[in-house]
Write a protein that binds this DNA or RNA. Structure first.
Lengths: 243, 243
DNA sequence: CGGAGTCTTGAGCCCGATCAACCGTGGTGG
DNA sequence: CCACCACGGTTGATCGGGCTCAAGACTCCG
């Protein structure tokens, strides 16, 4: 651990979602932060079927949750960005029913093992946060499922681009109207339930219509208005209710 | 409230999932059980976009969670059966991003409004249950998403039938090898992301192969072995970890 | 310079969508 | 009692969005 980030100086604290954390809670978190782990792009963070590991928070970078079938078909369930929990399901159940893999270089905050119950007993506000983050992730999966089940390829793609664009902007990752975009077209295909080839063609079509510009791992020129119209995107409230 | 079910006599308590509830917790639940609500089949329980309502538990009957697009396309997210939470997302966020509708006649246990926080503060074990039930539902949605994104129509249908069969059996709803099955083919189509017509044809094909018999709202003759082989169904652990 | 990973393009086909009837059953009201 | 209708299921015909197979191009890197 060369220079572990202090929870007190955690860059994520600036986000509105983490507004209501008290100093005591922060001290608890700091005390139980067991390690800070950095991984290269494309590293497995959690294997499908792996038994309960630590609970992590994604501090930096992108990752994704996925499931695979025996013959190799893969479905990406959702994209993880800084502030997201990693491994809640694996903690709550005997084993993870999904895998997690990093897209970029990634930094994780690892919390001490077997402390989950202690959180519920001693820090109800943090326990509430766990529940809330879990429910938020479920809502994301709900949205993806609606897309994959009922939207056309162009609609799905618009949706995804817009969704990631808004999330990244909320995290301050958009600079000069551009975003470093680490998903390959294979990732996009597996997220949207499309084939690789068809994803490519749809992408080109949207690019041709100047709805956005995605090339060389950079997303820019996002025409939010037209993308919203095409995809039927709805802005969702991210605010946590006050107690 | 003619004859509200006492929580102490709740039929759901026999389920392994609810093993570890203590008498104090039970008393708390009983105290905050505000009402017992019964609805006819096809009743809306929660509207899309509706603001925070009560938190319910499904005591009896089937329901489903869904999202719709402005033009009417609908995606069913998951099927609710006795013991499932209803409206956790609506409680945690300002408004529900999905609707809920009953499939059969349904009985709901309603808990007092604005007590959610009290649960976290005073009954950590119950708070843990909320989190756990939420995570369990997310896992269900994950599974549906994998099906809709990456499985063929026949695989999806086998999966769904087998999944509902196992869940219902675990709840003691299978009698004499048969199950009252309240989903119409339209519901099945919206669950699997298929068209109405194609669902019908796929259903007939599986029926012809004697994989199961589904007619007149009754599911029977379920050939578990062959359905498992066809769909790649994996049995999942439902046990809650002990503290 | 070769190889791996990513992206692109073409051709052909098929799974599943769409459109359009039609059937059977149960409820409802004149 | 019957005409009517709503609803769920069934069937046929046709279409097309997206899949598959196959090859080639570009980039980065050792």
């Amino acid at each position: 651990l060369p220079h572990p980030t202090s929870c007190f100086a955690c860059p994520l604290r600036a986000l509105p979602v983490f507004d209501s954390i008290t100093p005591e809670e922060l001290a608890f978190i700091q005390e139980h932060k067991a390690a800070e782990i950095t991984l290269r792009p494309g590293s497995p963070i959690l294997h499908e079927g792996q038994e309960a590991e630590r609970l992590y928070t994604l501090l930096f970078g992108w990752a994704f949750r996925f499931k695979t079938l025996p013959d190799g078909r893969r479905q990406i369930l959702n994209i993880l960005m800084p502030g997201d929990l990693v491994g809640l399901q694996a903690k709550l159940f005997k084993e993870a029913s999904h895998g997690i893999e990093s897209l970029t270089a990634v930094t994780l905050c690892a919390f001490a093992r077997k402390r989950t119950w202690e959180v519920f007993r001693n820090f109800p506000a943090l326990a509430f946060d766990l529940t809330w983050l879990g429910a938020r992730e479920e809502r994301l999966v709900d949205d993806v499922l609606l897309s994959v089940g009922r939207r056309s390829a162009a609609e799905r793609l618009s949706m995804l681009v817009l969704h990631l664009w808004y999330r990244a902007r909320g995290l301050g990752m958009v600079q000069d109207g551009a975003l470093v975009f680490p998903l390959t077209q294979a990732h996009i295909a597996d997220t949207l339930g499309l084939s690789y080839v068809h994803t490519n063609r749809t992408l080109q079509e949207l690019r041709r219509q100047r709805l956005f510009d995605l090339s060389n791992g950079l997303l820019a020129g996002v025409d939010e208005t037209r993308l919203r119209a095409l995809s039927g995107y709805e802005v969702v409230e991210e605010l946590r209710p006050l107690f």
